[in-house]
């Protein structure tokens, strides 16, 4: 829509004004790591973050979310979107949000997600520091982020702000923006092209080759069991993943023992009982009984199964799973490269 420029010295003032008018969620420090959190002061904002522990999906699809509240057997819906600005999202996370936007909408539209999403203005930003396990430059290269409302690129002396929707343009009111000149636009374009080459890890084949070879490896049970030998079935790799969205649903009563809520919470296909169901008379069947079969399911889901409908792999290369796996076996790069290299 338009490409603007704001001077470095005016930037904090812009953020401050925006915070006065809106709820702003952005990257903030937590111990030695980063998380997306509601900004209370401008200096909390850490646009130099490398990666956050949890992806921004938590804003639309919280770890625990009441789907319905009930009184006796009468239910009420609790879809209650709160307008927010999600500020400073890296491009791989925007690609992930594009996926969850699509998935929560296809077939049956889930407003418990979509309403929150709709109420959010998303502003992307350049990756200034790169997470040590990231490989965003080597996955889904033909898929570009599209669901954001604006994008901020850091260049010499300030920021280029490209607005993409009216929601994004509305933020211009909060800062001293001027039209970006051609040199500034060119510099921003260069920064954003270069950032894609900065991820330290690399998948050594193109997405369709990966998909084909990984699918073929499905029946190599021994290989999968070997990959998963040290797996704790802890589901951390699922929970931190921006493109995982499985959930469990449980009902609980409040202490009055009459009212309560039907609540969904994040689940993960690596957890031991994820694919278990009871068959009656005490018998149950686990359709992914072994660690290897569960490990395989995640990799298949990330590299193969949804490629067709998503236009590329589900994995966006953020490297969160690699960082969060204490056994250090979750890294898709190691798994996929081993398979493609045979």
């Amino acid at each position: 829509m338009s490409v603007k420029f704001i001077k470095e010295t005016d930037f904090n003032d812009f953020v401050g004004k925006m915070m006065e008018a809106r709820t702003v969620v952005g990257p903030v420090a937590k111990k030695t790591k980063f998380v997306f959190g509601e900004l209370e002061s401008v200096d909390q904002l850490r646009l130099d973050y490398d990666v956050t522990i949890l992806p921004p999906k938590k804003l639309f699809f919280p770890p625990r979310q009441d789907l319905l509240k009930f009184h006796g057997q009468k239910g009420t819906s609790c879809i209650c979107p709160q307008p927010k600005v999600l500020f400073g999202v890296h491009y791989y996370d925007i690609k992930a949000i594009d996926q969850t936007d699509f998935l929560f909408n296809e077939n049956n539209a889930d407003q418990n997600y979509l309403a929150n999403r709709e109420a959010t203005t998303i502003i992307g930003t350049t990756i200034q520091n790169v997470s040590p396990r990231a490989f965003f430059g080597s996955v889904g290269k033909n898929v570009n982020p599209k669901g954001h409302d604006g994008f901020l690129t850091r260049i010499n002396g300030g920021w280029v702000f490209e607005t993409l929707t009216s929601k994004g343009r509305d933020l211009l009111d909060f800062g001293k923006f001027i039209d970006a000149d051609d040199a500034q636009k060119a510099e921003a374009a260069k920064v954003n092209t270069e950032e894609k080459t900065k991820s330290p890890e690399k998948i050594k084949a193109e997405g369709d080759v990966v998909a084909q070879k990984v699918r073929k490896s499905f029946s190599e049970d021994e290989l999968w069991e070997e990959f998963a030998k040290d797996c704790f079935s802890c589901g951390s790799c699922n929970i931190v993943c921006p493109t995982c969205y499985c959930f469990d649903v449980q009902d609980n009563w409040n202490v009055d023992q009459h009212s309560g809520a039907r609540t969904r919470s994040w689940d993960g296909c690596l957890k031991a009982d994820f694919a278990e169901c009871s068959l009656g008379q005490g018998a149950c069947e686990n359709f992914r009984e072994t660690k290897g079969s569960r490990f395989r399911h995640r990799i298949m889901r990330k590299a193969v199964y949804s490629n067709e409908k998503l236009g590329g792999p589900a994995c966006v290369g953020c490297g969160r799973c690699s960082l969060s796996c204490t056994a250090d076996i979750a890294d898709p790069v190691n798994v996929i490269n081993r398979i493609v290299e045979g």
């Binding site: 790591k33 993960g268 957890k271 960082l323």
Partner: peptide, 17 residues
């Protein structure tokens, strides 16, 4: 399921990190 699940949901920085 393991405590890791809850740590991650709480966005606690992992002890190992």
């Amino acid at each position: 399921y393991p405590v890791c699940v809850e740590c991650k949901q709480n966005e606690t920085v992992c002890r190992y990190q």
